[in-house]
Design a protein around this nucleic acid. Structure first.
Length: 490
RNA sequence: CGGAGUGUAGCGCAGUCUGGUAGCGCAUCUGCUUUGGGAGCAGAGGGCCGGGAGUUCGAAUCUCUCCACUCCGACCA
């Protein structure tokens, strides 16, 4: 933005206000609203995901589900309600979630004296609405597993969960959210560790190749671990304000849950033993990550692989006389693109073309196709890349465009990834001492600092962590466990 | 759950300090003229000022009390 040519500075106005530099959190909310992705609901902390936003989630689901199944995981579904006793069996687990559980205590409503409905018929055994399903899945599959021949047992469910958050933020932290949670059961300690890492690699594939998000893969420090896990692996993402967002999570649960749920099997040696389990999840938060990693001051920029629409066709209608012919031409282009498997929107409404254009920009549709009488007369289309802006405008024949559209989308993906990666790489700074950590965040610089893991032992770090609200994000694999990344996070 | 802020038309805001029955911009509707990076002119419609209680002849404005949202923390995907 700062290097925008002075010539157009006079009439330049970003579509989203405030800009990222002016106020990042407010910019984020404006992007969500202007792109028509979601809105707040009557229920505190719960949001309505609107069709344009839900379309992204469906595409993320499709891509991730296929990859999960490649790992021989089967989909299943377990109840929304979990008996409170289940949760209380694992001490660390209950500590981790007890504070944020919604509890179902009654099973009926009746009219009170003032005509209002009040809960009636208290439940003898209350339920919690699942914050996660380790316990109920464990209690179920213990009956499915008797022998090493029943292993591995790999299950996944797509569902909603509820965690009573105090400070909700659309997509990033909501009381109810959508995710998949995988729960695998393995034969050995090595098996569960390798499995947790395998699922992490699936997420990495999704992030890089579908969401165009560069990741920092690593292990969480002990205090950042999932309650009950022996190791938590993560993909940390960097947002454009330099804050971290945890992109997914994959836990090696060891025998914690197999012991509390009593998942036992007879091993190859004939001896009975507890199984080794993993759990791994990815949520609708990834949509927030996409917005904050790729968006610019004109709004969202959607990665082509999961974009609800990959191409927006915008007819430039001059008058009613030529309307039918022009829309017919646009529809032909749309049909040709759809035949190539490309998701296309065509805005045939009477709204002014320039407003349709801005709508497509704010929604972040990767490719915009403008079609007016000029194009129609010559058998052409004009196309513009969202990530590069109007300087990328090109006019080519319909055939050429249709044949090249897939490659154009791939190019967009590639440059989005490279741009995000360049940002990430230029916002990680090596430091040696706690004082350098303090100096970095005191100067209000954006990004992470990378230090030797021994810094975690330094007593002085605690005060700095508190003062600037920084946490260890992960111990990246890339430094073979010798370094730790510290930063602010969502 | 702690600290701070904001609730007035679909959206963004002014008006509140100093009480007198509500205004601006955008959007919407109508008409004409326009049309390739947010159109122009003319006209029109739309709000019991977040809810409740109180003070007052009179409350958007003062008092009390709820509620919601936003930001910064704590907690987390």
């Amino acid at each position: 933005m700062s290097n925008a040519p002075a010539a157009k500075a006079s009439n330049y106005k970003s579509a989203i206000q405030p800009t990222r530099a002016e106020n990042f959190p407010e910019w984020y909310q404006a992007v969500v609203k202007e792109a028509d992705l979601a809105e707040s609901s009557a229920v505190r902390g719960c949001y309505v995901i609107k069709p344009y936003g839900y379309g992204m989630w469906e595409n993320i689901q499709r891509e991730l589900d296929a990859r999960i199944k490649e790992c021989d995981v089967q989909n299943a579904y377990f109840p929304l309600l979990i008996p409170v006793e289940y949760l209380s069996k694992e001490a660390e687990h209950v500590d981790g979630f007890a504070k944020e559980c919604a509890v179902v205590t009654h099973h009926r409503l009746e009219k009170g004296p003032d005509g209002k409905l009040i809960p009636a018929s208290p439940l003898e055994h209350p339920y919690v609405i699942r914050p996660t399903s380790e316990t109920i899945i464990g209690e179920t599959i213990k009956n499915w597993i008797q022998s090493y021949r029943d292993l591995p047992c790999k299950l996944n469910q797509w569902c909603n969960v509820m965690r009573w958050e105090m400070r909700p933020r659309v997509f990033l932290r909501t009381a109810e959210f959508l995710w998949q949670e995988g729960h695998n059961c393995l034969e050995t300690a090595d098996g569960s560790r390798e499995d947790a890492l395998l699922m992490l690699s699936v997420y990495k594939d999704l992030m890089e190749n579908c969401l165009a998000l560069p990741v920092m893969e690593g292990e969480k420090t002990a205090d950042e671990r999932f309650p009950g896990a022996i190791a938590t692996y993560t993909l940390e993402l960097m947002m454009q304000d330099g804050k971290a967002l945890q992109g997914c999570t994959s836990h090696d649960l060891g025998q914690t849950f197999s012991k509390s749920c009593d998942i036992k099997f007879q091993g190859r040696d004939g001896k009975e033993q507890h199984a080794w389990t993993t759990s791994w999840g990815l949520t609708t938060r990834t949509i927030g990550a996409i917005l904050m990693a790729h968006g610019d001051d004109d709004g969202a920029i959607m990665p082509p692989v999961v974009a609800t629409y990959q191409v927006a066709i915008i007819p430039f209608l001059k008058d009613d006389a030529g309307k039918d012919a022009l829309l017919g031409y646009c529809n032909k282009v749309k049909t040709a693109l759809k035949a190539k498997g490309i998701r296309v929107s065509l805005d045939a409404s009477d709204v002014r073309a320039s407003n349709k254009t801005w709508d497509a920009i704010k929604k972040g549709i990767p490719l915009r196709v403008e079609i007016g009488e000029k194009e129609m007369a010559e058998g052409n289309v004009t196309h513009i890349r969202r990530d590069l802006g109007k300087d990328s405008k090109q006019t080519v024949s319909v055939d050429e465009f249709v044949n090249n559209a897939e490659r154009l989308l791939q190019d967009i993906h590639k440059s989005m990834f490279e741009k995000a990666k360049a940002f990430r790489d230029s916002h990680i700074f090596d430091v040696k001492t706690v004082d350098e950590v303090r100096d970095f965040f005191k100067a209000d610089k954006a990004g992470f600092v990378r230090a030797d893991v021994s810094i975690l032992e330094d007593k002085a770090l605690e005060a700095v962590r508190k003062e600037f609200a920084i946490t260890p994000r992960c111990i990246p694999f890339s430094d073979s466990g010798k370094k730790v990344l510290l930063g602010k996070s969502y």
